[in-house]
C-alpha cells in the first residue's frame, strides 16, 4: 500500500466521519460546523481526484458560501436576538 493510497483511505474515513457527525450531533451549531469541515475535506478529495477546478469551486462555494448561508439561517431560526458576535456565544 503506497503512501498516496494510505492518504486516500484516511481522507475517505475523515469524510465519512465528518458527514456522520454533521447528521447525528445533537447540537445544531456543531453539526453545521461539521458540515463546513466536510466541505473543506471534499475540496481535498477533489484535488486527489485530479479535479482542481472542482476543488476551487468547492472550497469557495461548498464550504464558504453555503456555510455562511446555513449559519445565517440558524441564527434567524433558532432565534435569540441578534447582537454583536452572536456566533461566538452560541458556539459553546
Amino acid at each position: 500500500m503506497s503512501a498516496a493510497f494510505a492518504f486516500d483511505l484516511l481522507l475517505v474515513t475523515l469524510l465519512l466521519l465528518a458527514a456522520l457527525r454533521a447528521l447525528t450531533t445533537p447540537r445544531l451549531g456543531q453539526s453545521l460546523l461539521a458540515f463546513v469541515v466536510f466541505g473543506l475535506l471534499m475540496a481535498l478529495a477533489w484535488v486527489r481526484l485530479d479535479a482542481p477546478d472542482i476543488a476551487l469551486a468547492e472550497a469557495a462555494v461548498g464550504a464558504g458560501l453555503s456555510g455562511v448561508l446555513l449559519f445565517d439561517a440558524w441564527r434567524a431560526l433558532c432565534g435569540e436576538p441578534a447582537d454583536e458576535a452572536p456566533t461566538a456565544e452560541r458556539m459553546r
Binding site: A22, L23, L28, F35, M42, L49, A51, W74, L77
Partner: peptide
C-alpha cells in the same frame, strides 16, 4: 436545517460517484 445538510451530503456523494 438538518435535512438541508443531509441533502447536501447526498449531492456531494453523487458527485464523488460520478467523477
Amino acid at each position: 436545517l438538518r435535512r438541508v445538510l443531509a441533502f447536501n451530503i447526498m449531492g456531494s456523494g453523487a458527485c464523488l460517484v460520478l467523477v
